[in-house]
Amino acid sequence: MAKRVLLVDDEKDMLFMLRFRMEAAGYEVISAEDGIEGYASALRDKPDIILLDVLLPGIDGLQLCRKLKDSEALSGIPVLILTASNVKDVERKCSDAGADGYLKKPFDSLELLGKVKFLLGDSCGREESGE
């Protein structure tokens, strides 16, 4: 059965490209354009992996990540953070928020696919640090 990927990003075009890429790689893609919808979708649609952008309207990506990890039902889902942010210590912040990995935009699509595969294939493993 195809794995389900939840994309959360407020950039429609980004969602468009990612969907293309993911579906071509054989994944089922669902998406949300803000944090709250993202959370709701996670609850409702039970994805196998969540790809999260940091800068989101409403609740920001890191907070959402924290929420997901704190929720009993959802903590098992691996979260990969994609960020174009230049914030200091973004690596640490992602790690603090409980993310399982992160990738900086613009990213290399092969790298992205690799990471997704890894996270899906080894659902109890923990990545040390992004990149």
């Binding site: 980004m14 490209m17 990612l18 174009a84 230049n86 935009k105 613009p106 699509s109």
Partner: peptide
Amino acid sequence: VSHELRTPLAITREG
């Protein structure tokens, strides 16, 4: 700015 610059960049590249 960095976010604003990188986002379209990422999109275009992916495209």
